[in-house]
């Protein structure tokens, strides 16, 4: 549905997006991820045809946006960041205007508006003046606007920004629902949003594409750098045994309060070594010392960790991680 080749966009001397290439297939829900100011909105604005690319090619539903801008725009429903609307219009008036603008045939307009309002959950607000709507409802009206021409592709720029937790959950459910029969590209800087709604993510940082893949693939990019160990160890001998193993450092050791002979250890693994080999050495060392192993869990990288590792700006900073997994 979307093919982006070597897209660059600069604002005078500031380069907002540089050499980004990616594609989004039919029926996918893709998260466009990046910290604030990474170039997410700029990229989406180029895709939606609001901004022209400085160089590179963008094809929307097979139409080059530079050569056939109207055909490309007909194929997509775009919701800009912060959902701008005309405050003086009623919801139904606004959607009627948008339906006319998007060339919905006259006989189908009322049905299209009704359907869009139903899906976005604003049917009961049809007669309300937009100025009187809350932020959450404005967001939904903007979403209904994106849906009104029933486009095969939706581009949503931060659809949950500024909403309360309940509204965020509603919008995510709606996006998932919409994704069942069309392609959705949504931008966000909230990782849990991508994990909750998207099958695939594209990560950009400072105008460059830094990673692309399914959520699992992204997670796998971050190698396991820690082990969590539960052992039977009445004499606290495990730590001494482990310090002898090359490439392992004991981060913490806690004796369980209910069972004084059990300890919970967290180990850091040297990132330069193969994690599997080191794990094997750890097990051998503990067995040789006569310590019973109850559990051995490799720490799994959360998407947060992947994200911060990908978008960290100082390469020297060591990935000091928390134990929480996603």
């Amino acid at each position: 549905m979307i093919q982006v080749e070597d897209l660059t966009k600069d604002y005078g001397t500031v380069v907002a997006v540089r050499g980004v290439s990616f594609s989004v297939g039919k029926g996918e829900i893709v998260g466009f991820l990046g910290p604030n100011g990474a170039g997410k909105s700029t990229t989406l604005r180029v895709l939606a045809g609001f901004l022209g690319a400085t160089s590179g090619h963008v094809r929307i539903a097979g139409h080059d946006i530079a050569k056939a801008p109207l055909a490309a725009r007909r194929a997509l429903g775009y919701m800009p960041e912060s959902a701008p609307l005309y405050p003086e219009m009623r919801v139904s008036e606004y959607l009627m205007f948008r339906a006319r603008l998007k060339e919905v045939p006259r006989t189908e307009r009322l049905r299209a508006i009704g359907g869009a309002m139903d899906r976005a959950g604003v049917s009961h607000m049809a007669g309300t003046v937009i100025a009187h709507l809350s932020k959450g409802y404005r967001q939904r009206v903007a979403l209904a606007d994106a849906l009104v021409s029933n486009p095969p592709l939706l581009i949503l720029d931060e659809p949950t920004a500024g909403l309360d937790p309940n509204q965020i959950r509603d919008v995510r459910a709606l996006v998932k629902d919409l994704g069942s029969d069309r392609t959705v590209l949504l931008s966000t800087h909230i990782l849990s949003e991508v994990e909750a709604t998207c099958e695939r993510a594209i990560v950009i940082d400072r105008g460059r594409l830094v990673a692309e893949g399914t959520i699992e693939e992204l997670r796998a990019r971050q190698r396991s750098t820690g082990l969590e160990l539960r052992v039977r160890d009445p004499h606290a001998a495990a730590e001494a045994a482990l310090t002898a193993v090359f490439g392992v450092s004991v981060r913490s050791g806690v004796t369980e309060e209910t069972a004084p002979d059990r300890r919970r250890l967290r180990l850091g693994l040297d990132a330069a070594l193969d994690a599997d080999t080191v794990t094997e050495a750890v097990v051998q060392a503990l067995t040789a010392a006569g310590i019973g192993i109850h559990a051995l869990v490799p720490e799994q990288a959360s998407l947060e960790q992947v994200f911060s590792a990908l978008t960290r700006h100082e390469p020297s900073a060591a990935p000091e991680q928390s134990a929480e997994t996603a």
Partner: peptide, 14 residues
Amino acid sequence: RSGTIETLLTAPVT
């Protein structure tokens, strides 16, 4: 100022 120009110009209009 309000940003509605973005929705207007991303509709299929010249």
